[in-house]
Design a protein around this nucleic acid. Structure first.
Lengths: 207, 207
DNA sequence: ACTTATTTTAAACATTTGTTTAAATTCCAT
DNA sequence: ATGGAATTTAAACAAATGTTTAAAATAAGT
């Protein structure tokens, strides 16, 4: 058996934290090892290389993120309710993991080698039946006829970007962390109303 | 006098290109030097260090971006028209410089040392009178009463994120570059309509 | 033409970095 | 207890990296 917590998992956790805040080339294997309290060689014993470890972390992050969406889509709810729930979930989740979106996008752009296969994620979303639900709502005139890729973009743009841009926004507007948090809270409601109004023009708007 | 084009400028151009695609720690000074066709030492002769060069590139990128916005705000137009023009401009501009937003955000997050002073940017935006124009429109009930920081976020989210997320979107939805371009073209119109509808609820919507 | 300042280079430096090797330690079944 | 496997470490390697030094080449001023 293993120690109190498996070394492998401890490495993954530490790597996740370090990679998230500094990116792949922004940190060293020794830095990760030290933060776990182990030798550098042990990293390559469990994971074959820094790259492999990074790919694993990146893929896990992306999976968690997709699974979170799928979880909402699986619920037995109207599209409007799923929309609200998805946005709320995303804002709450990102409050706890604000580095995630930037990490994913920067990570995907840096790793030109060994491109990750993202196709399983689409299947994972399909399974939830969300696409059919949208198609049907669109056919019934309940939902605006917008390509699903654009719908996805609307959600991600308005949920992820506000978090990603914290440094920029705080820097330009010279506001504190506390004030930024307040803006985020307000933004959560703004995004919900704006997206629901746009995607479901005939709904009775405010829940 | 200098050569055909000043070496300093050639370095800046090359550094911009390399930093944009690989980030600060993702590239080497030798890589930049080679792409200019000069010796490594010359980098440190003109700019004191890799970090200083990077900060310069980052600051320039941010400035260009803010100046682009200010240019629109300076025009003698209604808020709705400025909104349309800003969104169109941003989409067109980012079609040519798609790496810019991710570069800026990743760059700001990586450079914990020597935090850049972004306060001048706010002044640059204030000068345009855009804030007063919004305040007045809000007082007259022509514009929805939303904090200007949230307004900024709505714009940037919906213009910048779609470009930043190309790798992710193409990866998940398994679409080609060409198809992504089509989605972007459609998205430009979607964002315009959605934002105008949301910010100016009483306008006659479609221009 | 000669001197001085500017620009550019080659080479070297000291660290750092990802990875590997071989030995040491721990674990576990018998 | 003991032997073999799994885990962990210290040390070493070679390559890469940011930066500096000192010399060479070029430009400019007189």
């Amino acid at each position: 058996m293993k120690k109190d917590q498996s070394t492998e998992q401890k490495i993954k956790d530490a790597a996740r934290k370090v990679f998230m805040s500094k990116g792949f080339s922004g940190c060293t294997t020794r830095e990760i090892a030290k933060s776990v309290g182990i030798n550098v060689a042990l990293l390559n014993y469990y994971f074959r290389s820094k790259s492999k470890l990074f790919e694993l972390i990146l893929e896990t992050a992306l999976t968690d993120f997709i699974e979170g969406m799928a979880e909402v889509f699986h619920q037995d709810l109207s599209l409007e309710d799923k929309t609200r729930m998805l946005i709320d979930r995303e804002f709450e989740f990102l409050k706890k993991h604000p580095e995630l979106p930037l990490f994913i996008h920067a990570g995907l752009n840096q790793e030109s080698e060994s491109e990750m296969d993202q196709s399983p994620f689409l299947g994972r979303l399909r399974e939830t039946g969300i696409f059919e639900q949208c198609e049907q709502a669109q056919a019934e005139g309940k939902m605006r006829k917008v390509n699903m890729i654009n719908v996805t973009l609307l959600f991600m743009s308005n949920c992820h970007f506000p978090i990603m841009s914290k440094k920029l926004v705080c820097g330009i507007y010279q506001i504190s962390d506390k004030e930024h948090e307040e803006r985020m809270t307000a933004h959560q409601e703004i995004v919900k109303e704006m997206l629901i109004n746009y995607l479901f023009p005939n709904s009775n708007q405010h829940a």
